[in-house]
Write a protein that binds this DNA or RNA. Structure first.
Length: 121
DNA sequence: ATTATGACGGAAG
DNA sequence: GCTTCCGCCATAA
């Protein structure tokens, strides 16, 4: 019956994180903590970073659009990963000055429709 | 079961 | 603006 069609779909926490990160538009950034909140996983910012680390590269997630809450890249500034992330952000059109990104300028603010129907966790 | 480790966040100095 | 410290939480050993 109808109930059958309304069975709850289960999505694992890590999949929610991947899904949301995949929705960050080019030219915008979000933070580990914010992604966790959007995924319904408050207080699990660190888990977002491990989730990104685990994402198969074949998913081609825009992982570089996730930075820390201070508007900075979370890798060591001398690391290769840091350089890569900075380059990808610049390709997105996001300015990275002195290792800092202006959140007031580039923070992703999903609209109501997106929150309700696209990432409804 | 304990311990150590982070792509974190926030408060404090 | 710094930097340090501490709480947090999912893994790996």
């Amino acid at each position: 019956m109808l109930e059958k069609k309304l069975e709850k779909i289960v999505i694992s926490p890590i999949e929610k994180i991947w899904f949301i990160v995949d929705h960050i538009p080019k030219g915008y950034v979000s933070s580990y903590g914010k992604i966790a909140d959007l995924a319904g996983l408050p207080g699990r910012a660190r888990y977002v970073s491990t989730a990104l680390k685990r994402a198969p590269s074949s998913m081609a997630l825009p992982w570089h659009r996730v930075i820390n809450s201070q508007g900075r890249i979370s890798f060591e500034s001398k690391s290769q990963a840091y350089q890569t992330q900075m380059e990808l952000l610049r390709l997105d059109g996001v300015q990275v000055n002195d290792g800092k990104i202006s959140l007031s300028e580039y923070a992703w603010k999903p609209d109501l429709i997106t929150l309700m129907f696209e990432i409804p966790f």
